[in-house]
């Protein structure tokens, strides 16, 4: 049984936000109108967190692409009164849109603020409905939604592998955000397979997790930016 996880190399991330848009198109996430956006109601399952610190001219910014981190110990699933969210055996924290009563307890319990609520009925102006992905249901108003790690892609990849009579191989199943990343800063795979890229990277010295101290055990792992430390060939080390 795989345990899906993601590794994001912050040294390579260019803060371009292609992952954000790719996720939205893949998962039928509507664009909220401007006045709603101004009220902070943009729905994006993955966002780039700027994290600006310091004062001019000694500033640092660590843009961090942040999807749901799919905790192994997710604070959100405990609090849902109707069990509309849960963690499946492969470690994916999922949301059952059809069962959610919209109490938003999970959104508040999530220390990463990575759960989104449908404040209104999703709007797809004009022919934007034509661009909807049939693999993903369009959520009604009033329910909570979140990153599914593009679960529909896993199902497709499984079906395809089964049709070809083989095991699921690394790279068969990749979420839309990882797939699009122009800098190749995102990796995805089975954390339990010690030879997978993600597992190898997650063991490295640069690996860290966000809000690790909360004991949520996230499966989205970051690689520290590191610093340039002279041209002696050691520059890439942290």
């Amino acid at each position: 049984m795989p345990r899906w996880g993601m590794v994001i190399d912050l040294a390579k991330c260019t803060a371009c936000q292609a992952c954000v848009v790719a996720c939205q198109t893949e998962n039928n996430v509507p664009c909220v109108p401007p006045e709603q956006a101004a009220r902070g109601r943009i729905i994006s399952w993955i966002s780039v967190l700027p994290q600006l610190e310091g004062e001019y001219p000694r500033l640092t910014m660590r843009p961090t692409p942040l999807p749901c981190v799919h905790c192994d110990n997710p604070p959100c699933i405990r609090v849902c009164p109707v069990g509309a969210t849960g963690i499946n055996p492969e470690g994916v924290v999922r949301q059952i849109f059809a069962r959610c009563i919209g109490c938003r307890y999970c959104t508040n319990a999530c220390p990463y603020t990575r759960r989104m609520f449908n404040w209104y009925r999703p709007e797809f102006p004009g022919e934007f409905t034509e661009a909807l992905n049939p693999d993903v249901s369009v959520r009604p108003k009033g329910v909570v939604e979140k990153c599914t790690l593009c679960h529909h892609r896993l199902q497709k990849a499984r079906d395809q592998a089964r049709a070809q009579n083989r095991e699921l191989a690394e790279g068969d199943y990749i979420p839309a955000c990882v797939e699009i990343c122009p800098a190749g800063a995102m990796y995805f795979g089975d954390l339990d397979d010690p030879n997978s890229t993600v597992a190898t990277l997650a063991r490295g010295r640069r690996a860290f997790r966000l809000l690790e101290e909360l004991g949520t055990k996230p499966k989205v792992i970051y690689l520290a930016q590191g610093e340039w430390s002279g041209g002696d060939g050691q520059g890439a080390r942290t």
Binding site: P81, C100, I101, C103
Partner: peptide
């Protein structure tokens, strides 16, 4: 609380599929 629900029409889900780990339950 009912006012606060996004889907008050699904209120009975609380009885239909209760999650006893939730403080809300």
């Amino acid at each position: 609380v009912i006012m606060d629900l996004g889907r008050p029409d699904r209120l009975l889900n609380v009885l239909r599929s209760p999650n006893f780990r939730s403080p809300l339950l």
